[in-house]
Each structure stands twice: as C-alpha cells, then as structure tokens.
Design a protein around this nucleic acid. Sequence first.
DNA 1: AGTTCGTTTGTGAATATCCACAAAGAGCAG
DNA 2: CTGCTCTTTGTGGATATTCACAAACGAACT
Lengths: 411, 411
Amino acid sequence: MSLQPNYFQQYQHADMDELADLIGELLQNPITIEDADHKLIAYSSHGDSTDPARWSTIMGRRVPEKVLTRLWKDGVFQELLTQDDPVHIPAKDDIGLGKRVAIAIKRSTDVLGYIWAQEVNRPLTPEDDEILRQAAKAAVSRLIQRQGKRKAEEQRRTEFLWELLLGNHSSEAAIRQKADSLQMQMPSHSLICIVEAAGARLDQYLYPLLMRDKLYWVVDGSQIILLIGLLDGKKDERDVLLRKVEQFLADSLSKLVTHASEGKVIAGYGREYKGYSQIVKSYREALHAVKVKKLFPRETEGIHGYHQLGIYRYLLKLKQWEEEEGYKNERLERLRQYDRDNQTAMLDTLETFLDAAGKMNVTAQSLHIHINTLSYRLRRIEEIMQVDLENMNQRAALYLELKISKINQEQ
Amino acid sequence: MSLQPNYFQQYQHADMDELADLIGELLQNPITIEDADHKLIAYSSHGDSTDPARWSTIMGRRVPEKVLTRLWKDGVFQELLTQDDPVHIPAKDDIGLGKRVAIAIKRSTDVLGYIWAQEVNRPLTPEDDEILRQAAKAAVSRLIQRQGKRKAEEQRRTEFLWELLLGNHSSEAAIRQKADSLQMQMPSHSLICIVEAAGARLDQYLYPLLMRDKLYWVVDGSQIILLIGLLDGKKDERDVLLRKVEQFLADSLSKLVTHASEGKVIAGYGREYKGYSQIVKSYREALHAVKVKKLFPRETEGIHGYHQLGIYRYLLKLKQWEEEEGYKNERLERLRQYDRDNQTAMLDTLETFLDAAGKMNVTAQSLHIHINTLSYRLRRIEEIMQVDLENMNQRAALYLELKISKINQEQ
DNA sequence: AGTTCGTTTGTGAATATCCACAAAGAGCAG
DNA sequence: CTGCTCTTTGTGGATATTCACAAACGAACT
C-alpha cells in the first residue's frame, strides 16, 4: 500500500474541477463528481465521448431521478454507502447508463459525495480502483468546506421543522417569513407522516422517494418525520393529499420491508390541517397513530392515517380513564378465569367473533372450528359473561373493553 | 262552625293515651293514633271488640306492612295526604281490616301522624267527622314535641348519609362509629340508587317500599337517593344485591309511572362497593347513569345499572375529549349534508342498522322499507362516508361517533 | 316531451345463519 | 367401569343475507 504513489498529494487545495480533470487523465475516462444529494460538483472536461446519463447529469446539474431510482433499486447505492471501495456497475442501457465505476466520498460513515468514472476509452483496472480510493480521500476536505454551508442551512431547516412540529412558534406570518428566508416552499395544506424502522438508515433508503415528492423531513432516532403537502392549490385538495400520502407510504414501505428485515416497519400520519400552527396537531396525531399501531399491529394492519384508526383512536384515552376511575372489568375476568379453569379458548373465540363483526362463518373458518362449535361457544360465553351478543351496545362495549384489556398484556 | 262545641279544649296538654280514650268515648268506637311512620303512639283502652288489623298494630306497635301496602295501593294514603278531612274506608276483609275512618294529623302540609277510628259499635256520622277534625288539631302540638326528637335524629341521619355520598368523611372506623351512634345498621356491601321523577313526592309514594326493604334514603330535589345493601352477609352476595335493586326498581317504577304521569321517571344505580368510603363512587356512578339515561332514553331503556351502560358509559368522556382536541367528524357531516341535499334519511337508516347490530331484516322492518332498499342505502352510505360497514372497527367507531354526535342535538 | 339520475321494489339463486336434536369423545368422581 | 358433564361435530329445515339484474317511479334538466 505504502509503496504505491500518492497521486493527489499536490492537489490537496486544488479546485474540484481540476481534481476531476486529473482523475480523468489518470483513468483516461470521463469523470463526474457529485455531492451527497447527487448535485453535480465537477466533471472532467476533455472527455468527448459520453453516455446519455452523464450528459443529462451535466446539463441538469443533477443526476436524473430515473437513474437514481434505478441505482437504488439495483442496490448500487446500498453498496456504495456500506463499503469504502469502488463499485463496478454494468451498463444499464434502458436508462442510458453506460458501464462505469463509482466510489463514495466519505468522512467516517458520512457520505459527502460520489466520484463516477465512465468506462468508454478503456476498461478500469484494480490499479484504477486505488486511484479512485485516493481521489475520494483527496476530495474529502474540499467537500467538507462545500458541505459546510449546506449543512448549516440544513441545520437551520431542521430546526425550523422541529419548531413547527413542536409548536414553538410565534405566528403564522413569522413562520412564513422564516420559511422564505430558508428558501422553503411551504404548502398551505399539509400533514405529518412518520415512518419508523428500527436500525434502518431511513433517510438514505427513502432518499429517492423524498426527492421525487419534494418533501421536507427530519430524522429522529429510528423515525423519519415528513411534512407532506400540496404546493399547487388544487381542487379537491383533501383527497389528492391523502392519495399522495398513501402512495408515498406504499412505495416507501415496500422498499423498507425488503431492506429493514430486522424489526418492523411502522408508519402513521396525522390529519390534514390548514395553518402552519396546526402542524403540531398533525404531528401528535401521527405519533398517536404509530403508538397505537405498535400496540395493535394485527388490528391496524393496512391502516396508517389517524382518521382511519376507528376505535383505536379512543382506546388509550379510555384505558387511562378506566385506570383513574379504578374500573375493573368483571365480565372479561370471569371469561379469563373460565378459560384458565377449563383449558378452553373462549376469550380468543370471542375476540375473533367480534373482529369478524359477528359473521359466523368467517369466525369459524378463522378459528378452524366447526360452525356449530362456534355457536355453542358463543352461547356459553353469553352465559358466563351475562351478555347479549345480539345487542349492539353490549357487543360494541365488549369489543372496546376487550381491546382495552389487551393494551398492557402485550398479547 | 263556631257554634259547634270544642271537644278537646281541656285536653291541650293531656297525654296521647288520654286523648285516644276521649275520642273513643265520643265516637263510641276503638281509636288508634300513629305517627307518620305508622308506629303506634296511643290507642283507646276500653274497646273490647276489634279487628285483626288493629290487633296486629297494637301487638307489633306498628301497622303491619301488608295493610300499609294495600292502603297505598288503594289510594287511601294519597287521599289522607292531600286532604284535611277524614277518609271513610270500607272493610278489606282479605287483610283483616274492618270498616273505619281515618284522618291525617298535619301541620300545614306536613303529616305528623294519623288517627284511626274503627266502626264496630256504631257507624260514624258527619258529626263524628268534625270530632275527628278537632282531635287531629288537638294532637298536633303533642306530636310536634314527639316528632321533635325524631326530626332531629332524622336530620342527623340525613347529614350522615350526605357525608357518605359526598365523601366528606375521615375514616372507615369513624363512619362505623357514627352509624352506631345514630343506631343505623350499615351494610358491608352497598350501592347507591337514584330515582328521579319530576314533581312527584317521591318519599311518600315509595314509603311502603322503603320500609319493606329497610333502606336509608335522602331526598334531593326531584331525586331520591337510596343506600341499598345487604345486612346479613350472604354467600354470592353480588347477585343477591343486584336482584334486590332490580326488584326494588321494578316495584317502585311501576308504582311511580302511574302516579307521576307528568314528566318521566328515571332511575339509575352505581356499582356495588365494599367499604363505606367507596359509597361516593357508587353515588357518582348512579348520577352518571341517570345523566346518560336522560340523554339516551330510547337506547338505555330497561337499563339502570352503571355496569350495564355499555358504550354509553364512555360517551360523555369521549365527547369531552373530542371537544378538547377539536376533532370534527367529517364523515358524519358528509352524510348529514347528503340527507339535507337529497331529502333522504341515510343517517336514520345507518343508526337503525347499527342499533340492530347489523341485522338486515330487523333494520328493514324497523324502518318499514324493503330489504333491498336497505341494502341499496347501505351501499350508498358506504360510498358517501367512505367506510366499510363489514369492518368491526369501523362499524364500532361509527356507532360511537353517531351516538356522541347525538348528545348535544337533543335528538 | 324526453333524458338522466337517484331511488325503490321485485325476482331468483347461491350462501349463511339459526335452531333443535343427536352422536361421540374427553375428563372426572363414585 | 359407569355415569355424568362439557365439548365438538354432524344433520336438516326454516330464515336471512348477498348479489346480480330488471322494472318502475319521481325530480331535475335540456
């Protein structure tokens, strides 16, 4: 290692464009340098032959979304993020991407940018890999400076979003002013969406989606908190926004469940509000939704919106009230005692029956029992608990009580 | 009037027994004087022939329950309470009661006691009625003195009961001591029951029942608040107590609905508790039950116990919470708007359907519509509200929301 | 007047529910 | 072992539910 020449010693303080040119000369191939957001920083100038992907990148001063999405999908970025060595990427003709080699520019695990080397004039060898490794190191200090300003602005944007989320703000006008000064385009109608995945680098995995939908977000531990709104004041805005959120969640969850295999992926979002000062409400609702979804994963499967929670919206509050009042549910306890005494599964039967909205055959099939067995058990349950399952009041009350009682039992 | 002799002038300060004897001599018939609780105060001594009712009264120092119940049932007491003249009562052989005349001893409208004159030796004439009127007047001052002590004790008992109801007490031991000093036999397990009937003299109408079940009670406006417990520590106490309350309510409500025709009769009771310090809880629950029954008379028909309220137990709390959170139910509002726009009755259809626990034919019959009409309406409701009525979570949530929304609308 | 839309009612067939009754197995006490 | 209770599963017939499809009606609009 130490015997190899140090190609970039004299370029420590050089311009990024000069660095790109130097790498291009050494590798005899076109070079592109991007920042972490895939914005173009520099590119080698005397490569006359190139591919549509590079051409679009230079013209748009950013890597096209289509290319990014594809590279995320194919796991290229995942490789770049996790390893320090160059990654050799085969040609992907359908998106106009020729064969190339890429390396991430990192400070420890922080990705500052990427260097891309196309393979058009000659194939790239393992020696070229070493050149790229050194080039990535040489680029670090320049990128840090460059990132400095961006980071500061990022920091101020994050702080601003937290202010919105926590409600630490003075007035609507002040918020609007601050958003303008940060060059943030705030939607008039918006809601908060939370995606939580233990152990996953959420913002990295979701980056293409976040970019696609032009969202503002904050990462908080294992949660990413998103501000979702519509910029252009459309008609029938409400349904459009809800569809946008559901679309985003469908995309992001399908992406995350494959990546974050460990632990579960949970998402929830609050209701849509008009003013900026209401964002705190939407955030609280989103948090509530996530909390409830953790407590009732099966029951709330497929539900993400606070407005869709149904009775689960009430349960925590009711639970708290029952504890304050010291209310003990004797009927449920009697059924539990019966189950313990007789090794039966009446409670489970009851819950399945209630979950099935009182449909006999659905319940029986779900429990893998004969429908007459179910009928018998329900008659016994009515006797034991002294309830009338045909009565909607009693049935609904039982349903609520049952779900409330499950809160602290971790199933 | 002024020409008639004043028979009892010299007896103003005489003994009650002497008064009874004098009346007996004047009417030539056996006389009995009772206080407002039908306890024996005095009786004429030289009446040799009498009937089983009078005999039992003297032997037991109180009018037998059987006789009282019958006289209340036949409206005799109602007459006595409302008028100042003697009431002529025909013989009621089945309870051993011979023909007699009675008059209430009153100070203004306060009943202090009764004078009973049997008709065995000779029939009683209108002149005898005047004698009884004067006798009743003469008895007032003596009875007031006699009632003085009783009233004071009554007062202290009432205060004690209010302390229990409102929780203004120090310790269980202190309560027990105070109860002993008031010669009140306190049940170990008890609950609070409230009967409310606007405009009715509750304690008077219910008196025989209160006596029969040996209850303690307090009258508060149009409510009578009862402490119901079991004195002897029986096995399976809980069900026994509940049966006792339900029996009492069945008896008293059937009695009251005939009397208090104006306004509705409402009754509610709290759960059973062990310690005296828990009575306040039972009282609050009883109040809650009464409050809810006023808001949902149809839905809670036949329900009196707090433990039977089902979802209605939660509704006020949930309503309060929704108001705090500023939660607006858009779905219900959409349906209401639809009903207004199209002159339809979707909301009513939905409520009936939910109340019928999702039974199609019950709902259709209740609404007097064809079952396919119902089916069509439900499909439309699902479209308009964007809900899935087959989903128990959504159905229960809708049920709750619907009932909550009715709270302030006075139907 | 004709058209369209939302609504009501009807028919028919597949499926589900409800109810009574019966047979069989498991567990348990005498 | 026998009898007993609790539980499960089965059969069959009366009712209910679900769905597709069609006819009829009224209100609003052109």
